[in-house]
Computed example of a mutant assay.
Amino acid sequence: MTDPILKISNLTKRFGGNTAVSAINLEVMPRETIAIIGPNGAGKTTFYNMVSGRMTPSNGSVELEGKDITGLPPHKISRMGVSRSFQLNNIFPEMTVQENVEVALTALHGHSRRLFNFASRNRAVQEEARQLLDKLHILDLASRRAEVISYGDKRLLEIAVVLATRPHLVLLDEPTAGMTPDETRRTTALIRQLAETGDYTFLITEHDMDVVFGLADRILVMHRGENLFFGTPEEVKNHPEVRRAYLGEDEEEEASA
């Protein structure tokens, strides 16, 4: 039997007398796409911050491929194979699209960002950057400055930067937030294609339910910091408590149905 790539046990975070996340348990299998949903204030961001090392849990543990990473700093967790998107915070607007990816690859190969000229002289890095851009369908933007491309293309560039670190586990934070419907469909299809390659395991937070149901193998529904339900998209759709708490079905709608 395959072991989980990520195992979360009783993960809890308290701020003073308030519990933001309470005893979450989750196992993510290799090559699986897990979505985490819930209303604002459900604890999704706090949960993500604990998994990626930006917050230390009050209780519980996080294991990556059998290794305890609980409370390790983000840079160490990143080196162990967890890469997280930050809604454009990884993008250098003054650089070209290709240079952005080359910076990430340069860091992966153990070179300081201050030594960016390493990438400019290294054909292997340049070729790998172009392959990633091609995989994200934005190779035609390679020579354009990142600051002038569309918002949707910037989000795709950020995913390219994330993938440049060769992660074992990819954490995508609201990957379609702020996108037009066309950009959303394009990005959803792309993430699905990446998942289908079998090269990546995804943990995704997302408010757009069409995106969630179109991508997720399983869905964790959080409500008030707790695990309200965990199951397949079909199980989530048909779960009455989930529908009341998050999917917008109120008692009046139920009564009129």
Rank of each mutant, 00 (worst) to 15 (best):
P240V: 02
V28W: 01
K13T: 15
V62D: 02
R123V: 08
I138T: 14
S58Q: 09
P167Q: 03
H75W: 14
L203Y: 00
A124C: 11
H239Q: 12
F213L: 09
G41C: 12
S150E: 09
I8K: 01
Q131T: 14
R114F: 11
D217C: 04
K13E: 12
S9D: 11
V101Q: 04
F92E: 06
A119L: 03
S120M: 05
G152P: 07
D210G: 12
M209P: 02
P57Y: 08
L105K: 03
N49L: 01
F230M: 07
P93V: 12
R186E: 10
Y200R: 02
E127N: 15
L6P: 00
T232D: 05
P93Y: 11
T197P: 10
T180A: 10
F213Q: 04
D210L: 04
E127K: 15
L108I: 03
R185C: 01
A164Q: 08
E235K: 08
S85L: 10
L88D: 05
Q126D: 13
A119Y: 08
M222D: 02
L171N: 03
E235Y: 10
T232L: 04
T106H: 09
N10Y: 07
A35C: 15
M95H: 10
S78C: 13
D217P: 02
I159W: 07
M50T: 08
I24L: 07
D153M: 07
P4Y: 02
F47L: 13
T188L: 11
I36S: 01
L132Q: 05
H111V: 12
L141N: 01
D173P: 04
G81P: 07
F213D: 01
M179D: 10
L115Q: 14
A195L: 00
T184F: 07
A119H: 08
I204Y: 01
I8V: 13
E206T: 04
P4L: 03
V51H: 05
L64S: 03
A195R: 00
R123K: 15
V51A: 09
M209L: 09
L108C: 04
E63C: 10
M1V: 15
I159K: 02
N10L: 01
L247F: 13
R243S: 13
R114T: 13
E252K: 11
A216V: 06
P39Y: 07
N227I: 03
H239L: 01
S58C: 12
T232M: 04
M55H: 15
I5V: 08
E183W: 04
G81A: 09
I69T: 13
V170Y: 00
V236E: 02
K7F: 03
P167D: 10
D217W: 00
A189V: 08
Q126N: 11
P74F: 03
M55C: 11
I159R: 00
A20D: 06
S9V: 06
Q193T: 15
L171M: 11
I69S: 14
R218K: 08
T197Q: 12
T232Q: 07
I24R: 00
S143Y: 10
A146N: 11
A42R: 00
A146L: 05
S120I: 03
R166N: 15
